[in-house]
Nucleic acid binder design. Structure first.
Length: 422
RNA sequence: GGAGAGGUGGCCGAGCGGUCGAAGGCACCCGCUUGCUAAGCGGUUUCUCGUCGAAAGACGGGACGGGAGUUCGAAUCUCCCCCUCUCCGCCA
């Protein structure tokens, strides 16, 4: 949710935002509704004020054993008017709320304007991919050969685009999750959370997946739940409707969860292997901060995620996403991409976003300032990291010419071996 | 899933259909007083929306788990939903 004051005081900023993001919304309609709803509220309040005064008068008279029939008749008429006006207000309010929830966040000034990947800006890391000295097998080939993935049988139990890890593959996956959790809890000071991933509708509105990404999520048939597409949803909604003591900030959570995405409309793309799947594992970082420390904390969040790819010794780069590539609720997003020599592609393993107060307004997450007053917190999150593509990067980048996979140093204690394969 | 009990301010806890935003206590903060491991006295202390205002703020509407209803008027009555606790049943 954007600050509604902007709607009244600086509508041009919002108009520009919509244009930058390529969003089509009737802003004038929204502004008009806002005006109408406030006028309606004022009228309603005036009626209520009159009614309250009359009711009080009636109360006084009755206690003196009077029967103020005339006043009561007046009050009845007034009450009717209140009811009618309430209905009017509700209708305008509903229409307004419906439209306003479609207003995307305002991008930070440093975000490049553009519509697709070509407008994203290189920040740091490898400019060009490394050249291995031999032909690296794509992950699906090496993993089938080493019996780490069963790509043929996974569809039997779930369908296409589901991963079945097996043997050393399952162990590697588990090692990655544990390594990430340990890294962020012990080195970066995050508190581990293990949340439910079936989340109710209002939580998805809170973080901004709804209404826009409805068709990208799995919804339960008989209950009002969605399968969470990311731990951002439970972790950010953890403090919804709260006023946090200022000294509690910043709050830093890390969680491992499975993530579920329908990937509707992406068929035909990335069909081979495990690059794009319906269920995957991810370790997610979420922070709540005071606005004045928001961007400093955000840079540290990026570094925390970056530390994970560094520790795994993977070739990577960091990109600053352009307006067209960012999600709806984000003010700024960095992607960390690792290189896949088997596919000759950069793969996104982490998306680090700052929402400023956008999510906090939607989910009503505030904090008490040290001096006086309350304000919305900043929320931000980043993957630290998502496993399937990290898995790909390891089995491809750590592949040897004789068809083995070496284990990155930091994972050895989790794996108990130095390499996979004979 | 069935039966019962309950959900009130930062916390505990009262509350008759009408001066209840809500007694009392605790906590907090601010005064005053007295002086000794601290007490006493007085006062303050929520959030939200609207109007006006540059702002400080002023005025008003609203909030007692959530929503609907009855009523001139609801924390208080009715209905639905959610959550917590106890017991029973069922079950990874």
């Amino acid at each position: 949710m954007i600050d509604l004051k902007l709607l009244r005081e600086n509508p041009e900023l919002i108009r520009m935002t919509l244009q930058k993001r390529g969003a089509q919304l009737d802003l004038d309609e929204i502004i008009k509704l806002d005006k109408n709803r406030r006028a309606c509220i004022t009228e309603l309040q005036e009626l209520k004020k009159q009614r309250n005064a009359l009711s009080e008068e009636i109360g006084k008279l009755k206690r003196r054993a009077n029967k103020p029939e005339e006043l009561m008749e007046q009050a009845r008429t007034l009450a009717e008017g209140v009811k009618t006006k309430e209905n009017d207000c509700r209708q305008i309010e509903e229409r307004f709320a419906e439209l306003v929830q479609w207003l995307p966040n305002i991008p930070n000034d440093s975000v490049p304007v553009g519509s697709g990947a070509e407008s994203n800006r290189f920040v740091r890391g490898l400019k060009a991919p490394p050249k291995p000295g031999f032909e690296v097998l794509p992950h699906w080939e090496i993993c089938e050969a080493l019996d780490m993935l069963d790509l043929k049988r996974a569809p039997k139990i779930s369908g296409s685009r589901f991963i079945l890890y097996k043997g050393m593959g399952a162990l590697l996956e588990r090692a990655l999750i544990n390594f990430f959790l340990d890294l962020h809890t012990t080195k970066h000071g995050y508190t581990e959370v293990f949340p439910p991933v079936l989340n109710p509708t209002h939580c998805l509105y809170g973080t901004g997946q709804l209404p826009k990404l409805e068709s990208d999520m799995y919804r339960c048939h008989d209950d009002e739940f969605y399968l969470s597409p990311t731990a951002e949803v439970p972790l950010t909604n953890l403090h919804r409707e709260e006023i946090l003591p200022g000294k509690m900030l910043p709050i830093k959570y890390v969680a491992y969860t499975p993530c579920f995405r329908r990937e509707a409309g992406s068929y035909g793309k990335e069909v081979r292997g495990i690059t794009r799947v319906h269920q995957f594992n991810k370790v997610e970082l979420v922070k709540y901060t005071a606005p004045e420390h928001g961007y400093a904390e955000f840079e540290r969040l990026l570094e925390d995620a970056e530390a994970a790819v560094k520790a795994l010794e993977l070739p990577y780069r960091i990109m600053l996403l352009c307006t067209g590539d960012m999600t709806f609720a984000s003010a700024i997003t960095y992607d960390i991409e690792v290189y896949s020599p088997g596919m000759d592609e950069w793969l996104e393993v982490s998306s680090i976003s700052c929402y400023e107060q956008y999510q906090a307004r939607r989910a009503n997450i505030r904090y008490r300032k040290s001096v006086k007053g309350v304000d919305f917190v900043y929320t931000m999150n980043g993957s630290g990291l998502a496993t399937p593509r990290t898995f790909i990067a390891i089995v491809e980048n750590f592949q040897t010419e004789d068809g083995r996979i070496k284990i990155p140093a930091v994972l050895k204690k989790y794996m108990g071996v130095d390499s996979i394969g004979k």
